[in-house]
């Protein structure tokens, strides 16, 4: 139901152009990975999709991004972000209880009923594979959780507002291998219900979790295809060099 179409997207920080004529169709209920060397514009591209770059004064974008054929530049960014959730590179739970973290989104969007909130919190924590670890201590401060738990809490927090799209910006880069594996499993499980876009530095991770992969280099979209094709028979020399580790 929720596909994303990026058309002729150009993005600038001040004078500096960081995305060049990006055209990308992101399929619904699939996991799309964005890979590329550091500084190539992956985060910028991801943050265009929920307009998080609006907060950066010097940022400017041209082109169009449609979600379900609606131009996001015409949408209220607040409503857009309810529909398009985001998980950041470093876990950023609120300095509140575990329960409050997950209930925060539904609350600001008008859910007041205590039992409804309870249900949402339980479901979100279960979906984020965190429920078993925290069910006895929902009233504890979220900052007492481990990094991996905090990141899954942030995923639960994003799920709680029932988004249709989830953007993940290197969600595992601050985590140990065990937590990483848990989150990768989670991503695969979540694509039944959500359209997922993930930025990652880790090519094995892209290969493991994604259906499609886009390779960015210096702001250009070099290659975009289904993940197996891109990793096994890349068409572009630069893609091949990057995935075989010859540069980047």
């Amino acid at each position: 139901m929720t596909s994303i179409k990026i058309k002729n997207l150009n993005a600038y920080y001040g004078e500096k152009q960081v995305l060049k004529e990006i055209n990308l169709d992101i399929g619904e209920k699939r996991v799309t990975a964005i890979i590329g060397p550091s500084g190539c514009g992956k985060s910028t591209l991801l943050r265009c999709i929920n307009r998080m770059n609006d907060f950066i004064d010097i940022f400017r974008a041209e082109g169009e991004i449609d979600i379900d054929d609606k131009d996001i530049m015409q949408m209220d960014p607040v409503l857009l972000r309810k529909q398009v959730g985001m998980v950041f590179q470093k876990p950023n739970p609120f300095p509140k209880t575990i329960f409050e973290n997950v209930a925060w989104g539904p609350k600001i969007h008008g859910t007041k009923d205590k039992s409804t909130l309870n249900k949402i919190v339980n479901n979100s924590l279960k979906q984020a594979a965190l429920w078993d670890e925290v069910k006895g201590r929902l009233k504890d401060n979220a900052l007492g959780l481990s990094g991996g738990q905090q990141q899954r809490l942030c995923i639960a927090r994003a799920l709680a507002v029932s988004p249709e799209v989830i953007l993940l910006d290197e969600p595992c880069s601050a985590l140990d291998p065990v937590s990483t594996a848990k989150i990768e499993d989670l991503i695969v499980a979540l694509k039944k219900h959500y359209t997922i876009v993930i930025v990652t530095h880790n090519m094995q991770q892209a290969a493991r979790v994604s259906d499609n992969t886009a390779f960015l280099l210096n702001g250009d979209l070099i290659e975009y295809s289904d993940t197996d094709t891109l990793f096994e028979t890349p068409k572009d020399k630069r893609t091949e060099d990057y995935i075989t580790g010859r540069f980047g």
Binding site: G85, H109, A158
Partner: peptide
Amino acid sequence: RSIREGAYALGAT
């Protein structure tokens, strides 16, 4: 800033 961004990303004003 990361905490604020987390809140904005949930559709907060």
